[in-house]
Write a protein that binds this DNA or RNA. Sequence first.
DNA 1: GGCAATTGCGTAGTTAGTACACAAAGTTAA
DNA 2: TTAACTTTGTGTACTAACTACGCAATTGCC
Lengths: 236, 236
Amino acid sequence: MKKNSVKAVHSLVDTYPKVPLTVDCVIFGFEESKLKVLLIKSDLSIYQGKLSLLGDFVKNNEDLDDAAYRILKERTGMTNVFLDQVKVFGKPDRHPGGRVITIAYCSLLNIQHHALNIHENELDWYDYESLEDMAFDHKQIVDECHSWLQKRIQEHPLGFNLLPDKFSLRELQNLYEAILGVSLDRRNFRKKFASMDLLIDTNEMEQDVSHRPGKLYQFNFTKYEKKKRKWIGIDF
Amino acid sequence: MKKNSVKAVHSLVDTYPKVPLTVDCVIFGFEESKLKVLLIKSDLSIYQGKLSLLGDFVKNNEDLDDAAYRILKERTGMTNVFLDQVKVFGKPDRHPGGRVITIAYCSLLNIQHHALNIHENELDWYDYESLEDMAFDHKQIVDECHSWLQKRIQEHPLGFNLLPDKFSLRELQNLYEAILGVSLDRRNFRKKFASMDLLIDTNEMEQDVSHRPGKLYQFNFTKYEKKKRKWIGIDF
DNA sequence: GGCAATTGCGTAGTTAGTACACAAAGTTAA
DNA sequence: TTAACTTTGTGTACTAACTACGCAATTGCC
């Protein structure tokens, strides 16, 4: 068995194959009862007109998470967003310019809260349901992040990050139905959220609806943080 | 907006920073009521005596999953194992030889079924609970994979992959207790697995135990595959 | 004022999880 | 051989969570 000094380790590492590494951000939002994704039109002529995720190469001494936050900020101007690493995609032929590995990061955010400060390459919110073929393997990446989201939203009340501050229970249910792709019983849905005891009644009502207006609620983020361990805990 | 030809894309990709990429395999097993991990002693002198995951660099045109299977086979001789990608670790200083990104893959397997065909660097099964500081950031990686396992095992009956073909309910419970780090009520535990209706009674009994012997069961893998969608399905 | 749409509340039945008790089967050792 | 000990195997009563519904009340619109 051969042992290596630090110097030897350096030259050992130097001999190994290197690959370009990128981060792609899958940012979900919700508007008009539809799940949206933040996308741009691809720069590459071979992907002309196709939609692409917000992505960029990771810098030499940049932490992966930092790279994701940097990219989001550079491309959209957004800060104060939480990103989660979802999965690595590394098929040798996934990028036309040669082998590129990409790490998918995902986030959910309130469209009203995060204005798009930068307007390049038709950066905009696109309907998740209407997405067809995208640049690279980005459709697959978005779909995997969507599955991740479906799972996460059933374990944690993450949906609130996608809604305006004040929302009706109907809006909340629309959100869950849009993400999960199912229809839910209205009464049981309310009961579930009522029993969680994380909604604050604002004593305000919906405006400009052509039917009986619903109450508006706020999510009690403070209380949620305290209860969090309940969701993480073991209940086998 | 500048459009790029394929050729231009190639040269564009070539200008970006590249990093060495590795895969590390976290293989869990179970023996003598203890959760084990398959590890080796580190090659590197600065990590002398410390334990290390099974890892290697990803080859130039190698798919990431393929790399994980190759590494496992090269280092242990094992085939017929399912590996799951868990997370990427990429802190700039995580490797003493320079920046190296690693992708952690995880698996669970039956120690009896998978003999260690290769014996280098003290390759062996080590108690998970007794692990202390390891080479690189490998302790952190193992811990993250352990958390992943705790979650997965509560959503899918994966535990059976760690047990011998025929096992008693006590062994099954020991496994869950070892992985989850909690003690469970014996009667409720049995009831839970009985209600899942995935155990086959072999009509055999435990041998060589110094108390009343328990029945031996087999896991009904075929039936599980059919029921799988139930676990994956939406139950909101 | 009547119709349509939607909110808000409630109840009954089922399923899943928790907290227990106790007899039966085997080993060990006086 | 039998009493003490350990562990298995089964059961019951209670509680919490989920499901499938019914129906009156509020608003907009014609």
